[in-house]
Design a protein around this nucleic acid. Structure first.
Length: 227
DNA sequence: GCGACAG
DNA sequence: ATCTTGTCGC
């Protein structure tokens, strides 16, 4: 016998969609953690080489954003890129890096969408459910839905709407910069997801733990990929 | 049928 | 995501 894997890799698109719909039933969009109880937040992101995925997880204090720890996981790519299926491509490695962190964060930021997904279950929501940890999705571009551009001021927002439903928020974390798309991952409401994103950005466009994870993953790729 | 399409 | 030079702007 072998231990139950935290994540299974589907062998077909149909199987992947079925798994998303199954896990989505365990997803809740309500706020579960009080912001005052948050002391640690994390960010996780991935980089790729031809056949490997390099995942990085960074842990920082909140709201001071001081570095606490970081981990990197390198695994073979076992799923193609398909819009809406990102969790199956990056998920396994991201989970490996995250579970190796020395302490559990109260919230995790992911580079991708959460609820702002065609089946309302993007990478951030998927990871949150599997880790049973509140999560937030931060994306550069929209996958579904449409939002008016937020005013050009720090913290300005504009709802991302899809099918008459508010699935996320375009947030101008820093005036003069393009807005980021924030959406609920798991155990969090949209207002808190936006609030934590802004509080973790510290004047930059992207939440600090996510920026660090991005750099770390890229560095890992260069060192192992070739060099 | 024709686009759109996280990373 | 990744492949890549110069270049406009603060």
């Amino acid at each position: 016998m072998k231990a139950d894997p935290l994540m299974e890799i589907p062998e077909s698109r149909e199987e992947a969609i079925a798994l998303q719909q199954l896990l989505r039933q365990r997803c809740i969009w309500e706020r579960v953690i009080d912001t005052n109880d948050i002391a640690l937040v994390a960010g996780a992101d991935a980089a790729y080489s031809e056949s490997l995925v390099y995942a990085a997880a960074v842990l920082v204090s909140f709201p001071s954003m001081e570095p606490v720890a970081h981990r990197v996981a390198i695994e073979p790519l076992a799923f193609p890129y398909e819009p809406g299926m990102l969790a199956f491509r990056e998920g396994p490695a991201l989970l490996s890096a995250l579970i190796r962190l020395p302490m559990r964060p109260q919230v995790i930021f992911f580079n991708g969408h959460g609820r702002a997904h065609p089946r309302r279950f993007g990478l951030a929501a998927h990871m949150g459910v599997l880790l049973h940890t509140p999560s937030v999705g931060i994306a550069e571009r929209t996958l579904i839905g449409r939002a008016e551009p937020p005013a050009d001021a720090d913290g300005a927002t504009s709802p991302l709407i899809d099918g008459g439903e508010v699935v996320g928020m375009a947030v101008r974390t820093r005036s003069g910069s393009r807005p980021v798309i924030v959406s609920q991952g798991y155990m969090i409401d949209l207002a808190q997801a936006v609030e934590l994103t802004i509080a973790s950005a510290h004047g930059e466009r992207i939440p600090l733990p996510l920026r660090q994870a991005d750099r770390l993953a890229g560095a890992a790729r260069r060192e192992h990929g070739f060099a």
